[in-house]
Write a protein that binds this DNA or RNA. Structure first.
Lengths: 160, 160
DNA sequence: GTCGTTGTTGCAAGTGCTTGCAACAACCCA
DNA sequence: TGGGTTGTTGCAAGCACTTGCAACAACGAC
């Protein structure tokens, strides 16, 4: 909810209005601004947080019924290159897109209630530093997906 | 590589010969011992570490060409219930089965060289305890999949 | 050995996503 | 404004599973 609606309507071209600058950012890389991309950008600009690929395809279809899945997935790849979306794999291995990642963060999935939470760099710091020190492994936090049981479900399961 | 070949040939029915007891373990649950399951068990007993679902289907086909994918996947579900295999999702979201998980452990995937390593409870302890204390979240270590850059690839990438 | 119950299988259709390829159309340049 | 280059699209086929369902066959009982 933090600065959600206002961000899309902001007039400054930097952090504030990422959607407004997509077109020129594509141009800068020699990429093109097509009606199909316009549709996806519009859909994304109205999506908050996490959406699955299939969901995005469906929403694009609602705007333009001629939308083809492969186009959506290919455009998502391009937008990921631009840093506008980021994908991870949900608990069932499905693509899950995160729109406008403000900061690198991972995800926590409860296998019982299927809810999702974000974990920020601070919370993951312990793991990241252990792996970095012991193995020189650089963790890609945005792709980190942890599953298990949330507090509520542990309690519901009987506490033991 | 630790105690790989010998384990399958051991005669003691406890930890040592899990394959020999599968049949009765199925019986104990009112489940059946079918030729199709025999094939998969045989394939699994010759597989070490991590295999994808598709790979298992293929190997079963090598033993019995009439093998049907859905049967393999359904049998894997059953075997997972028995604790004989465990699945997680690889970096690309595909099913990855881990045969005979000796101890709970997670996985480390390098996005550059696609290699995989295991991380044990000790290494993940820092993360697990942070999440447990701060959120009462119980991490399912066997399903933990971390991606990033391994030491070798970081160096190859130019060190920066 | 035969019978009946019920867990399993095979099949076919479906989902989510990917890929190769030819036709198309943004966009740059004159 | 017209023309050419080349990034994109749409389509069809394919991969990795998943699911519903009717026919089948393990396995315990008689």
């Amino acid at each position: 909810m933090t600065a959600s609606g206002s961000a899309a309507r902001s007039t400054q071209p930097g952090e504030g209005a990422p959607w407004a600058t997509v077109r020129e950012r594509l141009h800068d890389r020699g990429l093109r601004w097509t009606p199909q991309r316009r549709v996806l950008i519009e859909v994304l600009s109205h999506s908050d947080g996490h959406v699955t690929g299939a969901e995005l395809v469906e929403r694009c279809r609602a705007v333009d019924p001629t939308t083809i899945p492969s186009t959506v997935y290919r455009t998502l790849d391009v937008l990921e290159d631009l840093g506008i979306v980021r994908h991870a794999h949900g608990i069932d291995g499905r693509e899950e897109y995160h729109v406008l990642p403000v900061a690198d963060h991972g995800h926590l999935h409860c296998t019982a209630c299927r809810q999702t939470w974000e974990i920020d760099a601070a919370e993951a710091a312990a793991l990241v530093s252990v792996l970095c020190e012991q193995r020189s492994f650089e963790v890609n936090l945005s792709h980190l997906s942890i599953s298990g049981l949330c507090a509520g479900c542990r309690e519901a399961a009987g506490g033991r």
